[in-house]
């Protein structure tokens, strides 16, 4: 499904701020596989997701998704195949557009945009149904501006937008990190529902060890631009938080564990 071959990315090359954020990184995801990604601050997790999404192009290496060479496709073209949710709840929706307008934009992901009506009656009903399933009380607020929603509601809406058109790959970048624990749990529940419903291939970054262990079929740990731990199957299912912390300090070659990791 997703096939990443030896990608490299250096920010600010040739300056004293040069930062080799991805180093010969290779990764293969099978169809329908859901993967949690953990790692300390600055490990390169977001950079990996941005490389796949095409926010900028990589310096070398290649990225294929479903057999299509994505390496040189611009971000908006890759969006046809990829759904995304960001850490910042403001980033995934247009705050001064209506909830239904946001959804309608997402319903046309990958299609050329012409002079047909931006949103149809039938769509409205469909959106209402989908929002009802999410159970966030949004089904009667279709014409409210997305900016009026709480952070958790915005993330749930963004999730729905990312999966409205079944993507070949779903990228979640700490999408619950900005939420309070209760809301975060709710958004994780929505995530599970949507991912399981379509058996979506998913890459989810998280700082929450428990989420990382409980969620998905496979766990990756990144450190310094590399993938340093890659566990799946039974081995992953039986992991405990202390074991994971242990793996982390081994991989980073030090005892000092990221505060954020311990706290969660």
């Amino acid at each position: 499904m997703l096939d990443i071959q030896k990608i490299n990315k250096t920010f600010n090359p040739g300056t004293i701020n040069a930062n080799h954020a991805l180093k010969d990184l290779s990764l293969h995801l099978a169809d329908g596989e859901s993967v949690a990604v953990i790692g300390g601050n600055g490990a390169g997790k977001s950079t990996l997701l941005n490389a796949v999404a095409g926010v900028w192009s990589v310096d070398s290496g290649s990225i294929h998704l479903g057999g299509v060479d994505m390496t040189h496709l611009p971000e908006y073209k890759r969006a046809k195949y990829i759904g995304r949710v960001f850490q910042d709840p403001m980033m995934g929706t247009a705050g001064n557009m209506q909830i239904e307008e946001n959804l309608a934009l997402a319903a046309r992901r990958g299609d050329p945009r012409g002079l047909r009506l931006g949103i149809s009656k039938a769509e409205r009903e469909r959106f209402r149904e989908m929002l009802r399933i999410l159970d966030l009380g949004l089904e009667n607020r279709l014409t409210d501006k997305a900016g009026l929603l709480s952070g958790g509601q915005r993330q749930a809406l963004t999730l729905l937008m990312a999966t409205l058109r079944k993507p070949q790959l779903l990228l979640l970048d700490e999408h619950t990190a900005a939420l309070d624990p209760k809301t975060a749990a709710k958004v994780m529940e929505v995530t599970r529902t949507l991912v399981n419903q379509d058996r979506l291939t998913t890459l989810m970054i998280t700082h929450n060890m428990r989420d990382a262990i409980e969620y998905g079929d496979r766990l990756l740990m990144m450190y310094n631009g590399h993938i340093v731990v890659d566990v799946s199957g039974e081995e992953k299912k039986n992991l405990t938080v202390p074991q994971l912390l242990n793996l982390f300090s081994q991989a980073s070659g030090s005892d000092e564990v990221d505060d954020k990791l311990v706290l969660s």
């Binding site: 247009a94 934009l105 992901r109």
Partner: peptide, 18 residues
């Protein structure tokens, strides 16, 4: 709508294939 979305949130717009 795509024009309005671009002004409202360019990041989101690109993520939605605009």
């Amino acid at each position: 709508c795509a024009v309005r979305a671009t002004g409202a949130n360019a990041n989101m717009s690109r993520a939605q294939g605009i």
